[in-house]
Simulated assay, not measured.
Amino acid sequence: MKKMLKIYDRVFKEKAVQLSYERHNISELAREMGITAPQLYKWRKEYEEFEQGSFPDNGNVKQTPEQDRIAELEKKLKDAEVERDILKKAVGIFSKIGR
């Protein structure tokens, strides 16, 4: 018999994390919420690392604001490199025509 994987939404996870900071006995809280204590600790660690970016929906990648900024800058750099390469080729073509 296969064990069904439970999927918890972002709101549930955030509420569980908030409650875990308010309560002293995390194992008891986890039991009350129907989850395991290690799962709750994992959610807490994720929330501490990514804060508002924690628990993304639809398989989005969790990234810190700095990682988002780096990804944006890398995309802009790649676009600029492609434009540069196109212009280099155009200069080469026009220099052959002008002879």
Rank of each mutant, 00 (worst) to 15 (best):
R31C: 10
G98F: 07
V91M: 14
H24P: 01
R31W: 11
E28S: 05
H24M: 13
V82W: 13
L87R: 09
I70H: 06
L19V: 07
E51P: 01
V82D: 11
K15D: 08
K62F: 05
W43H: 01
Q39N: 06
E14L: 11
R69W: 12
G92Q: 04
N25W: 15
S27M: 09
I93M: 03
F55G: 02
K78G: 07
A37L: 10
M1G: 06
F94C: 12
Y41D: 04
E74T: 08
V82G: 00
L40H: 05
S27A: 13
V91E: 15
R69M: 02
E28G: 01
H24T: 07
I26T: 05
K75F: 12
E22R: 12
A30W: 09
G92F: 02
S27D: 12
W43F: 02
Q39K: 05
M33Y: 05
L87V: 04
R10C: 10
A80M: 15
N25A: 14
N25I: 14
K75G: 02
D9T: 08
D68R: 07
L29F: 13
Y21R: 06
P56H: 04
A16N: 04
F94D: 12
Y21D: 07
I35L: 06
A71P: 02
L77T: 12
L40K: 01
E22G: 01
Q63R: 02
K3S: 12
E46M: 06
L40S: 05
A37V: 10
R69I: 10
I86E: 14
K13Q: 05
Q52R: 07
N58G: 03
K15F: 03
V11I: 10
Y8S: 09
V91F: 13
L77Q: 12
D79H: 11
A37C: 15
G92N: 06
A80V: 13
Y21S: 02
F50I: 03
A71M: 11
Q67S: 08
I97G: 00
E22D: 08
F12S: 00
S27H: 14
K6Q: 06
S95I: 09
K96V: 03
F12W: 04
I26A: 01
Y8V: 04
K78V: 10
A71T: 09
A37H: 15
E14Q: 08
T64D: 07
M33L: 15
S20T: 10
E28Y: 09
D9E: 15
K15R: 00
M1Y: 04
R84P: 01
R10F: 07
A30T: 08
D79N: 10
E48M: 01
Q67L: 10
G34P: 13
G53P: 00
P56R: 11
T36E: 12
E14C: 05
K42M: 12
F12H: 02
W43N: 02
R10K: 13
K75L: 13
D68H: 05
I7G: 01
R69Q: 10
N25H: 13
V61S: 06
Q39Y: 09
K42D: 13
E72V: 03
Q63G: 00
L73D: 05
L87G: 02
I35D: 05
E81K: 11
E74R: 14
E32P: 00
L5G: 03
V17Q: 03
Y21W: 13
I97N: 01
K96I: 06
K15G: 00
K76S: 06
